[in-house]
Amino acid sequence: MKEKPAIQEFIKGLWDENPVLVQLLGLCPTLAVTVSAENGLAMGVAATFVLVCSSFLVSLLRNVIPNQVRIASYIVIIATFVTIADRFLAAYTPEISKSLGPFIPLIIVNCMILGRQEAFASKNKLGRSLLDALGMGAGFTLALLVLSSVREVLGSGTWFGMDIMWASFSTWKVMSLPPGAFLTLGCMIAAANWINRRRQT
């Protein structure tokens, strides 16, 4: 296997293998929590924290964990860090913790995190796994931030709680409701496809 420069592991998560737009992983929290930019950012950061910590541990233990029970071990590791993140958010940012609700514990079954452990951290050295996790987390956060910004600006005329639209702007109620999430994400995936094809030709 030829060695790629390590920084490549970080960069690929941002666009080429963006977990949300290209790999379509971790869609449930993506759609559910992105009513406001603040929530989207919080979810992105929480998921990145869990991803980086579990990649760290899985990569360290990759030669210790028996192959047959690896998935179960990964899930326990992930669940532990999610519990930490959940308690932390509940203690320091109770409002965000409340509005994210059960979607914090649901980070455990976010297929993006388990997918990275299985596909990358269990096979690669510590440094690379950390870079990979950071890149994927950043890509995830970025996609969430864009999606939630679009929904918040159009749906309630605000961004991070600040009024930014003109006074006569009438809000698109549907954007804050579930259908808006599906529609916006569909358009974002289409835009990503379009840009990628443009770059190839």
Partner: peptide
């Protein structure tokens, strides 16, 4: 389907209309 929308993108848009109906 427009080329960029093929696959997951159009699925999301349809899911959006279904969600609208379920509302």
């Amino acid at each position: 389907v427009p080329r960029a929308f093929k696959g997951a993108a159009i699925t999301m848009v349809i899911a959006g209309s279904l969600a609208l109906a379920f509302m």
